[in-house]
């Protein structure tokens, strides 16, 4: 493998429109929009695959894997590891979140692969730790699964405001909310770990660089994304990663996969304070 560094220049604003993330609505505004950089990876002399890292400058040629060929998951994991190591070398002071402990523990005992021969599929996705993600603040007192005539009489004397929508929620409702939310997050977990679902042509998936959605810092968006030359939302960066390291097609903003991944990434950062614009 050989590493090549290259400073990139802006190549026009076309990319952002193709990706469905227009900066402004009017055509006049479009022409005036700042140029958006595209990470132009150099072409390999041997016709090997060249991959770009999300800093927009680190690239790497994968020896022996021709452009258009698919890597196995193991090859891809090696490449992404090497790319990250290179980036860390270049940015010794970078504030790269360490992989959270639970993820390490999960990685140590991966579940058995469901489909070990499919090169781009995950070996089985570790479950997202179970957290109540919705409705945890409701206290007792409404109509409950157990409540019929008898319970109702007991509740009638309780000093709780009632007779309106939010007065009528029960533990059953909360459990349904929590399970529904969890199912949504779980869906994102699956996509996040599955190169096929991401449409990767190079067997890359998000978890390779972002185990447990670490270092996805969803709480910092919107922020000025240097590599894009404009202000980005989380979904813009997800799409950037899909297009670049993952080498897939960017998704529509409301693609169910995109929505699920956003859900997963936010869920993994539960409790983190919002800090839009943070570097």
């Amino acid at each position: 493998m050989t590493f090549k560094m290259k400073l990139l220049v802006g190549t026009g604003a076309l990319l952002s429109f193709a990706g469905g993330v227009a900066l402004a609505s009017g055509p006049a505004a479009r022409t005036a929009a700042p140029e958006v950089k595209k990470h132009q990876v150099p072409v390999s002399k041997d016709g090997d695959i060249v991959l770009g890292l999300c800093d927009g400058e680190t690239t790497m040629e994968v020896d022996g894997v021709k452009d258009g060929q698919k890597m196995t998951r193991e090859q891809a994991q090696r490449v992404s590891g090497a790319l990250m190591a290179e980036w860390l070398k270049k940015n010794p002071d970078a504030n790269w979140d360490p992989v959270p402990l639970p993820a390490v523990a999960q990685a140590a005992t991966p579940p058995p692969p469901k489909n070990p021969e499919a090169p781009r599929s995950p070996p089985g996705v570790p479950r997202t730790p179970e957290k109540p993600t919705a409705g945890g603040s409701v206290v007792q007192g409404g109509v409950r699964p157990e409540s019929g005539g008898k319970d109702v009489k007991k509740q009638a004397g309780a000093p709780i405001q009632d007779g309106h929508t939010y007065g009528a929620f029960s533990e059953r409702d909360e459990a349904i909310w929590a399970a529904s939310t969890q199912a949504f997050v779980e869906e994102g977990n699956r996509v996040f770990h599955d190169g096929d679902l991401l449409g990767s042509t190079v067997a890359m998936s998000c978890d390779m660089c972002h185990p447990d959605a670490s270092n996805t810092h969803p709480e910092t968006y919107p922020k000025y994304q240097v590599q894009l030359g404009r202000v980005a939302l989380l979904r813009d960066m997800i799409n950037w990663c899909i297009e670049n390291p993952v080498r897939g097609k960017p998704m529509a903003d409301d693609d169910p996969r995109m929505r699920a991944m956003e859900a997963y990434i936010y869920a993994k950062r539960k409790g983190t304070a919002l800090e839009y614009g943070k570097k």
Binding site: S137, V139, G142, A158, P159, I160, Q161, Y166
Partner: peptide, 9 residues
């Protein structure tokens, strides 16, 4: 004579 309290914050 505390009025009925709210159920949700």
């Amino acid at each position: 004579d505390v009025p009925p309290r709210t159920k949700l914050p």
